[in-house]
């Protein structure tokens, strides 16, 4: 799904710089530091449409904004869903919000995952930690359109058992006969009988046809670097691999300059990039 860059005007009725008030319908605690917000427009307008991979700027009144990817089902027209890890001033304040509280939302921004381009191909998702959240919309989409895709694998790495995001859903997904879900932990105590090790160790034993595969990766940059290497060992080329980048964002419309990554504005040229577009920058320090 390619979103045609539509001309948008700041300070117009659909001003992308102006947050729209959304009300929190539900707060779900996912792990010790991750929570999910279910939102609906406070003024009764329809819930925004988005493409998997896009993000919103979420505003906590008086505190500030944070760029958070949309983690819900793109076909769910009733709710807007964001999964957030509490790590900074804004996300910690967001964590304290309750059902009924208001939050400002502007977006959606950025490029989507290549779910249309991937039709007919095997799809391999490799994620680490909170990186599963921006890919959950892809999982919903592929499962809802299963016949359009080939083999489907999710390789998910978490730090420890208490960091297992969407644990109940992971178990449910594993119940599908046509969805290969593998989970690994960086460290675990002796009562864990699952995989231990970094997520890249799952790649060599995952089944896919390298000539007809699209890989989507989200995680820390170091994890994405090694994942790309492993996938290329399996025969994937850089144009079959998609990664999502994270940078400081203030405006999300290419004006503030903060998210620049070489020639790219991560907010509008990304966050999802085909790896061949950024391969020359990837791994270079402090770009």
């Amino acid at each position: 799904m390619v979103i045609a860059p539509e001309k948008q005007f700041i300070n117009s009725p659909t001003d992308p710089m102006l947050p729209q008030p959304y009300r929190i319908e539900r707060v779900r605690r996912e792990t010790h530091d991750v929570f999910t917000l279910e939102l609906r427009p406070a003024n009764g307008t329809p819930v925004m449409q988005f493409a998997p991979g896009q993000f919103n700027m979420l505003y906590v009144f008086g505190t500030g904004e944070s760029a958070i990817s949309i983690s819900g089902d793109p076909n769910d027209t009733n709710r807007l869903i964001h999964t957030v890890r509490a790590v900074g001033t804004v996300t910690n304040a967001m964590q304290k919000l309750k059902r009924g509280d208001c939050i400002g939302v502007r977006g959606p921004f950025g490029t989507p995952w290549p779910i249309v381009e991937a039709e007919g191909s095997d799809v391999v998702i490799v994620t680490g930690g909170i990186g599963l959240a921006p890919l959950r919309p892809v999982i919903y989409h592929v499962l809802a359109n299963r016949e359009k895709y080939g083999r489907f694998a999710l390789l998910f790495g978490a730090r420890s058992p208490r960091d297992l995001l969407f644990a109940r859903e992971l178990e449910q997904w594993r119940g599908h006969f046509d969805f290969n879900v593998e989970v690994t932990l960086d460290t675990a105590s002796s009562d864990w009988r699952g995989n231990v090790g970094v997520v890249t160790t799952l790649i060599p034993r995952t089944q896919f046809d390298a000539r007809h595969t699209v890989a989507m990766i989200c995680g820390p940059e170091v994890m994405m670097r090694f994942t790309v290497q492993e996938l290329m060992k399996r025969g994937l080329t850089t144009d079959q691999i998609f990664v999502t980048m994270e940078r400081n964002m203030k405006c999300a419309v290419g004006f503030c300059g903060h998210c620049q990554y070489g020639p790219h504005f991560v907010c509008k040229d990304g966050p999802v990039f085909p790896f061949d577009r950024i391969a020359g920058l990837f791994g270079k320090r402090e770009i």
């Binding site: 500030g64 300059g257 903060h258």
Partner: peptide
């Protein structure tokens, strides 16, 4: 390049967002 500042008054009921010039030379920028 710019950054934004979110400010509130003492009552906490009124907030504003300001945009101001910023520089890629500051540590905070990235």
């Amino acid at each position: 390049c710019t950054t934004v500042e979110d400010v509130t008054d003492l009552t906490g009921e009124h907030a504003e967002r300001w945009r101001r010039w910023d520089s890629c030379f500051t540590m905070d920028f990235t």
